[in-house]
Nucleic acid binder design. Structure first.
Length: 480
RNA sequence: GGCCCGUUCGUCUAUCGGUUAGGACACCUGGUUUUCAACCAGGUAAGAGGGGUUCGACUCCCCUACGGGCUGCCA
């Protein structure tokens, strides 16, 4: 499933093609912020007829798990973000990373450093003790004569410029200038010959032909160091776009205490994927006043210019509202199919084929009013239950003796009417008129009888959906 | 500590030197009504603070405050 091989993805030189990538580390589920980063990359690639690649950054062997990779792929799939080509494993490419590190050595843009971790720690504590609040580590091996090299383990460090500044032309953040003196000679190859992230990410992005790096702005500072690697190798620097992170409702970085942080949790809560995509797209990106849009519209209009600079907070009310629009826009077949996925994700029992049949007949009267799948199921309750109907408390109150009497005298009149709204409606209107009732006095008990609930879709719709026989049976049962 | 980024209604945002600062969610009021939702009409609500630049700043510059990030042989 995950491969370190690279199929020929570099673009032919004549037609420069947009290539984006999402590169999560497999240490847990797909975070909602990661999901949005992936979404932006996907949208940008699709908007430009380019490719969206996926790479798993699994060089941290301690924390990377295959389960996490699987969870991330599931989350992306649920969000509808399809990637091009094979999933690349960064770990599988470690030989290539080491090769580049040695090329840097040969080019004189990197050097061997024999300082031990203890020596580095000592350097820092000493720097702090001597007043300096913090100091970037300066390796004594920088510029050392190779004849003085001991026979000991070493790391390969980038020979970073100590003066001047590095310019990041960021499509979201604008022009960012970082003084080189604040950057250290970062390690590119560890003493166990494994690559560090800073090296691997550049080598992989280059080899994969990535043209646009769209990622969280927690990487903005890293971009400067990574750009040095591109320069050291004479590689073309990609277009940078560092997008702000998502925050919780309180403005703090989104974390578990805010509730759901995993994409799959949102599936389990019953948000439709299209609504989730719409909401996440609008979170930090805007195209004028456009709020509700289908995914192909988002693809049509998405651009880097529309991305905002400030972190956005998650707003569940707006998420729900957006999802409500999408639920009502969805085709029945697609909706039913996704409903199945929700039931599995939520660990709820699947629907019987009988229930599905009724649902597809009656979806029209519930999908406009539901915001999430559990919401939809509650509103479709009358379609999913079978007799005897159990009334909840408010419904039971609506079935007092007087109301039962009303239902009892109504029922015979439904026996012969043709079963359309046009025919049923006059019968009920006539009935309330003859008995000096308000329509509400009749509708309440009907709701209770048919659905066992006090809030339901229109009584006409319910009658139509479950049919004459079932309607009469439920009314009879309730009025007994 | 140092460096980097950010700051428009409660929230998501529009605005790209001249607007009664617009839209959406949420909230409130009224209408419709068969409950809920929806819908229609209306309403409350914003440029963090302070200095500049300018005829004129939400918009450009500086400072402060607040929030976030980076500062690893993590990614």
């Amino acid at each position: 499933m995950v491969s370190g091989k690279l199929t020929n993805m570099s673009t032919s030189s004549s037609t420069p093609q947009v290539v984006t990538r999402f590169a999560p580390s497999p240490t847990g589920y797909l975070h909602i912020g990661g999901g949005r980063t992936a979404l932006f990359n996907w949208l940008f690639a699709r908007a430009n007829g380019g490719k969206f690649l996926l790479r798993i950054e699994d060089t941290d062997r301690e924390r990377s798990t295959p389960e996490a990779t699987a969870a991330i792929l599931r989350g992306l799939t649920w969000l509808g973000l399809d990637w091009d080509g094979e999933v690349v494993s960064q770990w599988d490419r470690r030989a290539r990373h080491a090769e580049i590190a040695h090329q840097m050595l040969a080019r004189g843009t990197a050097y061997k450093c024999f300082s031990t971790q203890e020596e580095i720690a000592a350097f820092r504590t000493q720097a702090e003790a001597s007043g300096a609040s913090y100091a970037v580590f300066q390796s004594p091996w920088r510029g050392a004569d190779p004849s003085s090299y001991p026979n000991a383990p070493y790391v390969i460090r980038m020979l970073a410029p100590r003066t001047g500044e590095t310019l990041i032309e960021d499509q979201v953040q604008g022009r960012v200038v970082i003084k080189n003196e604040t950057l250290d000679d970062m390690i590119v190859l560890r003493s166990d010959l494994s690559p560090t992230y800073m090296l691997a990410v550049v080598v992989d992005d280059h080899d994969m032909g990535v043209t646009h790096v769209i990622r969280g702005d927690d990487h903005l500072n890293n971009a400067a160091r990574q750009q040095m690697v591109y320069t050291a190798m004479d590689w073309a620097v990609p277009v940078w776009a560092h997008i702000p992170l998502i925050h919780g409702p309180d403005g703090k970085k989104l974390s578990k205490r805010h509730g759901a942080t995993g994409v799959e949790e949102y599936q389990a809560m019953g948000y439709p994927a299209a609504g989730m995509r719409n909401y996440l797209t609008r979170l930090g990106w805007a195209h004028g006043d456009m709020e509700i849009f289908a995914t192909d519209q988002a693809v049509e209009f998405f651009d880097l210019k529309g991305i905002g600079k400030a972190p956005a907070r998650l707003d569940f009310k707006k998420l729900e509202n957006t999802c409500g629009h999408h639920l009502s826009m969805m085709e029945n077949a697609a909706l039913l199919h996704e409903l199945d996925g929700y039931l599995v994700a939520a660990g709820v029992v699947a629907l019987t084929s009988g229930q599905k049949d009724l649902l597809s007949r009656g979806l029209y009267c519930v999908k406009d009013r539901a915001k999430t799948f559990p919401d939809l199921i509650e509103k479709a309750h009358f379609m999913l239950i079978s007799r005897p109907i159990v009334a909840d408390e408010p419904a039971a109150k609506a079935l007092d003796p007087v109301s039962r009497g009303i239902l009892k005298s109504l029922t015979p009149q439904l026996q012969t009417v043709s079963w359309t709204k046009e025919e049923i409606e006059p019968i009920l209107n006539q009935f309330v008129a003859q008995n000096g009732l308000s329509f509400g006095k009749l509708a309440g008990p009907i709701r209770a009888a048919l659905a066992g609930r006090s809030t339901t879709p229109s009584v006409f719709d319910m009658m139509l959906v479950i049919g004459r026989d079932e309607t009469i049976a439920r009314l009879t049962e309730a009025s007994a």
